[in-house]
């Protein structure tokens, strides 16, 4: 008897890979960036597919394919998932404590930085000359 294609394993694998790589694009939007929930949903959806596919590949090897291919796919999927979870849930939190940063109520350290035309801008002068309602200071990196 010809053994049949074990679709759940590969559906699970596709869902997982698509879910993890989607984060690369979803990073652009705060609603999908702060917590990578789309990828987490994909992981949760992929697990039962893998479970069903692998279970029948091993219980009924005479009917279903996928003992070797399915195991390799599962190991790759686990590795990708582990890397993804570490990078997005643990790695991104490894930033210094910044204990010396100005706190609420303390005087903002003065500074001079070039503006978009290369002209120097000094905080104390902006405050005394432009009399702004507030100065918003943003330290950012990357593209958002």
């Amino acid at each position: 008897m010809k053994r049949s294609w074990n679709a759940p394993i590969w559906i699970g694998f596709l869902v997982l890979v698509a879910g993890l790589f989607s984060y690369h694009f979803l990073l652009r939007f705060p609603a999908t960036r702060d917590v990578p929930w789309v990828s987490l949903v994909a992981i949760a959806v992929a697990i039962p597919f893998f479970a069903v596919g692998l279970a029948r590949a091993f219980r009924e090897p005479q009917r279903y394919r996928g003992r070797i291919g399915g195991t390799i796919a599962a190991v790759v999927a686990l590795g990708l998932t582990g890397f993804f979870l570490y990078a997005t849930l643990v790695g991104v939190r490894q930033i210094p404590a910044s204990k010396g940063a100005p706190q609420v109520g303390s005087r903002a350290p003065d500074f001079t930085l070039p503006d978009q035309d290369g002209n120097p801008v000094t905080l104390s002068r902006v405050i005394s000359e432009s009399k702004p309602a507030a100065v918003v200071l943003v330290f950012y990196r990357g593209f958002w």
């Binding site: 705060p30 702060d34 930033i95 303390s106 507030a134 950012y140």
Partner: peptide, 28 residues
């Protein structure tokens, strides 16, 4: 590089609001 951080400074030059995020993914 700088960690992501946001400060609001009032007209007196005093810091009035600080956001030092715990995760580089979560910005003000």
């Amino acid at each position: 590089i700088a960690r992501p951080a946001e400060f609001v400074i009032d007209p007196g030059g005093v810091v009035r609001w600080v956001n030092l995020t715990e995760s580089i993914l979560v910005r003000a």
